[in-house]
Design a binder for these strands. Structure first.
Lengths: 67, 67
DNA sequence: TTTTTATCCAATGTATACATTATATAACGT
DNA sequence: ACGTTATATAATGTATACATTGGATAAAAA
């Protein structure tokens, strides 16, 4: 299970930087999330990403998305 | 954003103990997840819960579920 | 030409998810 | 009666999400 943030950003014609600024998360850790170098996530960040990208957790998680 | 694991367990007529045994997670931390005393989760556990409960992340997260 | 966008990298610190061990209670099945 | 199910509580340790500070490069906008 991993994120497809980059794909959603591309669909919406937005950059990582744009999402990073919206989120308020440090760029280091934001980058790790986007590049799937983390093994988990805090709910507040998951919710924030979904809110900003106007999507749901299912949209973000590849394995469930593709079912 | 929080879990509704208990509700799904009830729907499926299963106990917390049953899910706890399936998961392999320690009971202490499993209980914290179920009772929403955690602020995040590791993907492997999210995936395992979804697999075992035959649901998706959206089914587990109340705020998205109710949209 | 200076600011802002857009990305990168390294080190150090804190909060917390999860593990482990050791308990306890009580209902149910055998 | 004993084992298993089904739940609890407490203490201590490890791994990691996330913060913070301090950089760097390059392109576009002001």
């Amino acid at each position: 299970m991993h994120f497809r943030i980059d794909e959603i950003l591309k669909e919406k014609n937005k950059t990582r930087y744009w999402l990073y600024i919206q989120l308020g998360l440090s760029y280091q850790n934001f980058k790790k999330l986007v590049e799937n170098e983390t093994s988990g996530i805090r709910f507040e960040n998951l919710k924030a990403i979904c809110d900003i990208l106007e999507c749901t957790p299912n949209d973000l998680f590849v394995e469930y998305h593709n079912k």
